[in-house]
Design a protein around this nucleic acid. Sequence first.
DNA 1: TAGATTGTTAATCGATTAACAATC
DNA 2: TAGATTGTTAATCGATTAACAATC
Lengths: 216, 216
Amino acid sequence: MARRSTYRLPKIPEMTIRRLSVYTRCLLQLEEDGVKTVSSQELAERFNLNSAQVRKDLAYFGEFGVRGIGYYVAGLKAELQRILGLDHEWPVALVGFGNLGSALFHYKGFTRQGFRIAAVFDDDPAKVNREVAGVPVFDMRDLGREVKARNIQIAILAVPAEAAQAAADQLVAAGIKAVLNFAPARLKLARDVRLKDVDLSIELETLSFYLAKNVR
Amino acid sequence: MARRSTYRLPKIPEMTIRRLSVYTRCLLQLEEDGVKTVSSQELAERFNLNSAQVRKDLAYFGEFGVRGIGYYVAGLKAELQRILGLDHEWPVALVGFGNLGSALFHYKGFTRQGFRIAAVFDDDPAKVNREVAGVPVFDMRDLGREVKARNIQIAILAVPAEAAQAAADQLVAAGIKAVLNFAPARLKLARDVRLKDVDLSIELETLSFYLAKNVR
DNA sequence: TAGATTGTTAATCGATTAACAATC
DNA sequence: TAGATTGTTAATCGATTAACAATC
């Protein structure tokens, strides 16, 4: 796991990364719409941000704009995709093919940015050893073998909470480097594995707070 | 929509609300485990937070602790549930009963905190006018009537992006006050309606950034 | 009482924003 | 050139954390 030495050493705020991701999608749309250039001001307005913030986010990584003009949509899109590692396909393992797993499998948003579900894993014998939309579904016991064979580094975990830690352990043993976890469980992973929890109900609970203050 | 006047006027940081939600779940667990009291230090350690932050988050709403002891688990849980509006059931409308809608329907996490899916809506004639697990599934055209009849204020939107704005408009017209939106679309709602977007792929994209810096 | 832990103030840190010289 | 917009510095704002008197 040699850390590649790059010239960009300052630590990037997490929020900056998230916004880069948002900008990228916007640029994708702008390009589709045939827009050639966009200013930090225009970009900012679409997301209720400050134009200085947009410029600062970009400045962490280089100078991509042209004074007096703004940013070339196609060029900036390509730069951001490169920065975010979205300039090539990432094969992804989907672990858990129940209700949520199936929904994520069919979700179009992942594909658009270069994430391709390369293998599905489940422990239900009725679901495995077949293909769904051209993607093989394997038994959990084949996880190590298939993840290595396909050089998969990212996993989406969509199993029940009880099964999450065991599945995560298998993923780490197989050499997975990043886990997007939808299971409502607090996972312990090796320290060099990136974990991101997606909490499907926390937003609902915060909405409830604002609602409780007013009506009812 | 008269704003109820309360004694708590200082604006609460969004992150504080999210953490309150996290604390609440932890307290639920602690209570199950039979733990009677917990200190800010113990609570903080579970989430890699600072104990002063835990105390400050709570201090926005009152004094719930006992010096020298900490917080009574049952008492604090009840207080936080009240603050977050989780001390009673919220009937919720689920709009869209495809793959994602179905996954959310079966998701157990919502129920636990008092959110109860009271009605499902879809525009597919094959899916409507029946019950699933005791919950009625209606045609979209019945949305206004049923939302009002059931006094539903919260909606979970899980339709395709193309259908999202039209569905949102119907929801607002029906008197919905908060929308949890899973559709990858930028919705325009009346200003007194709370909107929260859940982006299923942004986390994956930020993970990609960290991965791209190292391997590959 | 002695020990522990709160609630709160003040210090620190980091992120956002305003302002502007550089320059297309 | 005149107008527009960048990249960047400095000012502002807000959130996190350290410290500690209050007090159980």
